[in-house]
Design a binder for these strands. Structure first.
Length: 586
DNA sequence: GCCGTTTTCGGCCCGACTGTTTTCAGTCG
């Protein structure tokens, strides 16, 4: 069993217990253990077998035993009990905005076993009455959940919001189910482990490699000497691991005309229910298959064979070319790539709500090839995440200085590449547009990214006024996750992005493409508008732990879809140049 | 539940807004 699956079991346990357990520290311990498992470099299953799981931070005898049971039987008693005590309907109710455990329990108690799907359907149809703890606000939230889930999966129990779901020409959400990029990528990793050795080099394809922010299925391309025989082998070994195959080799539209000997197609469903299209190509056909499989279907029709290398349109720009928004001869030659990125300009440490010390984050960034790393912990007065006030920010400077000394030693003595840790902040933008730190504190910093976390439901006028005040301060370098959307979870603020872009031009403020697949904010359309207006971008992971530094690729994909060149992205500058070019130095 | 230790139990995660069971519990970030 993979670490992620074990982590999911403890997250589920914590989520359910959080609703009924008056003692928060127990389920908080489960949640902490889940996070630790998800991020652990070693296999939880192996550590458990070796009896060494107790050595892991946050794992004591009780959790160790639960993991043992989980590995042996696929579940454990506490989880089963939580599933009985907290039914799915109750759990779903608490995920409505504005509804917490207390309200959910009151509503659920009056329900008489009605499912969440039925409840949301009645709310949407207008046949749900106020009463029995059900307020007008709850009915509205249920109706919104119904609309979101209709867009996302149609089964009535899905996403809390349609945030991020693409719209059709008529402006209606395109029917899902939709999945985040990290969700499908983890499936790709799982698949890679399961495939027989005759199947080589599995890699994502389809909408994922076109930089789509949400996808409806995972496309995986792999290679084998004999695709037909390999497909049979795959079918057999995946069936044994709980994967279903929906269809045998039904040809995909964009692969029409290819012989089965060239490309065998398997339509699979992962154990978590995510559809996977696996195409296995032989050596002679793989280039052609990759060209067509990346899609969309209209591209394969327009260009059935891959052109010479120098004339290829990057996958991420195909849809814009098809839409007539981009002339093939105007496709930039210097589109940004992950390899161009020199550093991270928005990530956290354990000084605020991050999980790792500064030195660990810095080493992880260095291992990924970065030259600089800006520690941007939350600022005051964001208390829940332990935001730093000027005094703590000053104290953090000492730790950053010693981290830099340590990294310098590792460079000189162990031949490690040199990485420079920069002093930064994720500065809190307050409700009236004032800032969480005084200028005297900001003046000492190398990098200031300002973000909105509180009062997200303000009117468009209030939000833009807030942004205007922030941007007028020359000590602010960039705006982080400008619209504050959470993919499939929470709608964006009422921010007028066009107006924001105009102000960014006026004040030379950099806008972030937050690379976390939970955000992807700005999105590719907004980033494209920003670039067209002459705004520079910064692509950042917003990592709270070492492993999430890997999320950068999602942000790079979105920026490429927006047509960002190397020169448009400030993370591609050497640190000295980046710092010398800040607004405050102009 | 875990941790650290004062080895046996107390600390761990806070402040502000919301809305109506109208004065604070519930919810959020």
């Amino acid at each position: 069993m993979r670490n992620a699956e074990i982590a999911d079991a403890f997250t589920e346990l914590a989520d359910r217990l959080a609703i009924i357990d008056p003692k928060p520290y127990r389920w908080m311990a489960y949640r902490k253990a889940a996070d630790t498992f998800r991020d652990l470099g070693d296999s939880v299953a192996v550590l458990s077998d070796e009896g060494r799981l107790g050595e892991v931070e946050g794992v004591g005898p009780a959790i160790e035993e639960k993991v043992r049971d989980l590995l042996a039987s696929g579940t454990f008693k506490a989880l089963e009990r939580a599933r009985e005590d907290v039914p799915d309907t109750l759990l779903a109710l608490t995920r409505l905005p504005g509804v917490g455990p207390a309200t959910a329990k009151k509503v659920h108690a009056a329900l008489d076993g009605e499912s969440f799907a039925s409840l949301t359907a009645r709310a949407a149809a207008g046949t749900l009455e106020v009463g029995d703890g059900i307020t007008r606000k709850i009915i509205d939230a249920l109706a919104a959940a119904h609309a979101a889930s209709a867009a996302n999966d149609g089964d009535g129990g899905g996403a809390a919001s349609a945030s991020g779901i693409p719209l059709d020409d008529a402006g209606a959400p395109i029917r899902g189910p939709w999945f985040r990029r990290d969700q499908v990528l983890s499936i790709a990793g799982m698949l890679e482990e399961l495939l027989p050795t005759t199947v080589r080099a599995p890699r994502p394809s389809g909408a994922y490699v076109r930089g789509a922010e949400l996808v409806r299925e995972l496309c995986v391309l792999a290679e084998a000497d004999d695709p037909v025989a390999a497909a049979d082998e795959v079918r057999e070994c995946l069936a044994a691991r709980g994967w279903e195959h929906a269809d045998d080799g039904a040809p995909l539209e964009r692969l029409a005309g290819l012989a089965a000997e060239q490309a065998a197609t398997l339509q699979l469903v992962s154990p978590a229910g995510i559809p996977v299209e696996l195409v296995i190509a032989d050596d002679a056909s793989v280039e052609l298959v990759e060209h067509r499989f990346a899609g969309p279907a209209a591209w394969a029709a327009r260009e059935p064979k891959p052109p010479a290398r120098g004339r290829r349109i990057p996958f991420e720009l195909r849809e814009r070319v098809l839409a007539g928004e981009l002339d093939p001869k105007d496709v930039p030659k210097d589109l940004v790539t992950a390899a161009h990125m020199r550093g991270e300009l928005h990530a956290h440490s354990d000084w605020s709500d991050g999980r790792a010390p500064i030195i660990d984050m810095a080493r992880a960034a260095r291992a990924r090839g970065d030259e600089f790393f800006a520690v941007c912990d939350h600022s005051a007065p964001y208390a829940m995440v332990n935001g730093l006030d000027p005094a703590r920010l000053q104290a953090q400077a000492d730790e950053i200085a010693s981290a830099n000394e340590q990294l310098q030693r590792e460079h000189e003595e162990a031949g490690e590449p040199l990485l420079r840790v920069l002093r930064g902040t994720e500065l809190e933008i307050l409700a009236d547009g004032s800032l969480g730190l005084p200028d005297s504190a900001l003046e000492q910093l190398d990098w200031v990214v300002a973000s909105i976390h509180v009062q997200q439901r303000q009117s468009a006028a209030a939000i833009i006024e807030r942004m205007r005040r922030v941007m007028e301060n020359p000590l602010v370098d960039a705006i982080g996750h400008p619209t504050s959307r959470r993919m499939l979870v929470r709608d964006r603020t009422a921010l007028d992005v066009e107006q924001l872009i105009a102000m960014a031009v006026e004040h030379a403020v950099i806008l972030e493409v937050n690379a976390n697949p939970d955000r992807l904010d700005l999105d590719s359309d907004q980033a494209r508008m920003a670039l067209a207006a002459g705004v520079r971008l910064t692509i950042n992971t917003d990592a709270h732990r070492p492993s999430t530094l890997a999320l950068r690729d999602h942000g790079v994909a979105v920026a490429r879809r927006a047509g960002a060149r190397v020169g448009d992205v400030v993370n591609c500058l050497p640190a000295e140049e980046l710092l010398a070019g800040r607004r405050r130095n102009r």
